[in-house]
């Protein structure tokens, strides 16, 4: 029981990270119908920028105050947003309206490029930071097993919820959000109504990247070690989350993220940690095969 509770805490905090990344996939897919293959690597860039900012602020090794953490988060978000914007501008926009495969190949190229760029720029070795937010509270203790709710996990959950709340307001309450949703419904129509769709698409990438940067920062705090390769697996899992929740659906992405995080954590805890990625991949395959519209997605019927 205690053990399960611990896994629940771990799973939810991991799921929040996946959910944040998944939102980026879902947004881009909703608006331009492509899988932004490089999104996982944008998340990785976010983690690196957070790490570098933290070091710049002299946070290496010791505990960090809330002000410093906020700075790290903001720096990570803004630089990563710039990366998101650039990726779209350089690799996807010139291919708009082109053959459908071209953007996907370009995205795969971009993913390889980002990964190896960070490897060249920052080195291939893993970067250990140590714990920036130490400590936690012990929720309960039974049979010598203590259920820990660490401050990092609390932070992850609080920050993610806050960011997602802000994001929801942005999408549902502002003119900009309305324009985004209009583009998602029907891009041609939106363009006819005078919406600058190129700008909205750029914005989508910027916001998606900023959210991925939050995830990257949280990942850094949680695990205290990153490398240039973390984007691939996290990306595939977050994509799985987006699909599971129903691609195109924003609440679905978060829900999917939570589910993937929980499934992965419980699978590792009760079955086999080695095969935990197989669990995620199998869910991906099963979801796509059995219910391609996901949990909260819209059903698509093909008209003949």
């Amino acid at each position: 029981m205690a053990y399960a509770l611990q896994q629940l805490i771990n799973g939810v905090s991991l799921g929040m990270i996946y959910g944040l990344i998944a939102v980026g996939y879902t947004m881009v897919y909703g608006i331009i119908g492509m899988i932004n293959f490089a999104h996982g690597d944008v998340f990785m860039v976010g983690a690196f920028v957070s790490l570098i900012t933290a070091l710049l602020l002299g946070l290496g090794g010791g505990a960090a105050g809330p002000g410093a953490l906020l700075l790290v988060l903001l720096a990570g978000m803004s630089v990563t947003a710039l990366y998101g914007w650039t990726v779209e501008r350089v690799a996807y926009r010139p291919l708009r309206g082109s053959f459908r495969l071209a953007p996907l190949i370009s995205a795969i190229g971009m993913s390889i490029l980002l990964q190896n760029y960070v490897q060249v720029a920052q080195g291939a070795r893993v970067k250990p930071t140590g714990t920036l937010v130490p400590g936690g509270v012990t929720l309960m203790e039974t049979d010598g097993f203590a259920v820990q709710f660490s401050y990092v996990q609390m932070l992850i959950i609080v920050v993610t919820l806050a960011v997602l709340a802000g994001f929801t307001v942005l999408v549902t309450r502002t003119p900009m959000g309305r324009a985004m949703r209009a583009c998602e419904q029907d891009r041609k129509m939106a363009a006819l109504l005078g919406i600058n769709t190129d700008r909205i698409i750029s914005l989508t990438f910027v916001i998606g990247a900023a959210l991925a940067a939050v995830a990257g920062c949280m990942y850094l705090l949680r695990y205290g070690v990153i490398d240039f390769y973390i984007g691939f697996l996290a990306g595939v899992k977050a994509f799985t989350a987006a699909v599971l929740g129903g691609i195109g659906s924003l609440p679905g992405a978060v829900l999917g993220g939570l589910l993937i995080g929980l499934i992965e954590t419980f699978w590792s805890a009760y079955f086999s940690a080695q095969y935990k990625d197989v669990a995620a991949f199998s869910i991906l395959i099963l979801t796509l095969v059995l219910m391609p519209s996901g949990l909260l997605g819209r059903q698509e019927v093909e008209k003949v």
């Binding site: 291919l95 071209a102 490029l113 980002l114």
Partner: peptide, 10 residues
Amino acid sequence: FGAAMVVIMV
């Protein structure tokens, strides 16, 4: 390699 993929596609 990655950069070439992007450029060639574009």
